[in-house]
Nucleic acid binder design. Structure first.
Lengths: 162, 162
DNA sequence: ATTTAATTCATAACATGTTATATAACATCC
DNA sequence: GGATGTTATATAACATGTTATGAATTAAAT
């Protein structure tokens, strides 16, 4: 059995490790979704949830809401259009913006998911994470806030001045 | 300003969120590496570190060590070969296995990184994460162990039996 | 008012993960 | 000891993130 270096190296490989765990969690989440017979990707859910919460959003707002870049939001929105879960139309006051809204089918999926799938996923993840003393969600929030305040490159830099 | 749904939804979007933070951390790490004038990708470091710690490893062992699948290990090893940091030769006893070892150039990079870059990155990440009460590395270990014991789909499932 | 700059989304090219599958080498079993 | 299965790696196809850049529309400026 080979040593898990990412784990061994601790803070040094924190980025790789978070990504790795995130990918694993999302794959597991996908399994729950698939077992429920829903045809949607785990990564597409936050888009629907964002529109459900805030009403129709533009591509740029969706990107912000789910925390990815605009081209990623464009692509996923295109997929959701194909699937018939969202509709898109130019904003009346600004032809550059595209307002993305839920279709009836999309709203139904969201409503059903809120009742059946999302609580189950949240409970399973809480079961996985929540039993430890430190409240991990708050820690993640603090990390995100910390990164916004100062990126790694500005933290504990090598002393360059005398 | 648009609400950050991934953050708002908490445990439900834990996978997306960990991935997102991991990507951000790795991008930041890359910046530190670039500023130090080293020509290597952040994601390639764990491979070199694994060989440095354990001695020559096969492709499969590397995949295990860094926690990705074998095709990913094959690709990254190919890149490290191109860069001249590793060398590859068939295992003497089993021609299917390829033993990947550090070249002199690779060993120099590792030695230099251990002195100059890695401590800096680890310190910066610790600065970012370490100040909160819960020891996040232990929590991540517990999450990984928990996933190995039972995937999400087997946690808090919908009651199907009576 | 026409030119210039800024904004919004789309698209291309790339990075790096995945799954599925092919190929070569080793192991096993009558 | 040759057929059959298993294992290790490579490769193809895909998923989903990124950066860089182009096209259309709006805003600003002289």
């Amino acid at each position: 059995m080979v040593e898990d270096v990412v784990r061994t190296l601790g803070f040094l490989c924190m980025g790789s490790r978070l990504r790795r765990i995130g990918e694993r969690l999302q794959a597991d989440t996908q399994q729950v979704i698939d077992e429920a017979g829903l045809s949607i990707q785990a990564g597409q859910y936050p888009f629907l949830a964002a529109i459900d919460r805030a009403g129709p959003l533009t591509i740029g707002e969706l990107a912000q809401a789910v925390g990815i870049t605009q081209p990623g939001a464009t692509r996923t929105t295109g997929q959701l259009l194909e699937l018939g879960y969202v509709d898109m139309q130019p904003a009346p006051d600004d032809q550059r913006r595209r307002l993305v809204s839920l279709t009836d089918k999309g709203q139904e999926l969201v409503d059903h998911s809120k009742k059946v799938i999302w609580p189950r996923i949240a409970a399973a993840v809480a079961d996985l994470c929540g039993d430890f003393d430190g409240p991990i969600l708050e820690q993640l929030a603090a990390i995100e806030d910390g990164l916004a305040v100062a990126p790694l490159a500005r933290r504990s830099p090598v002393k360059e001045e005398g």
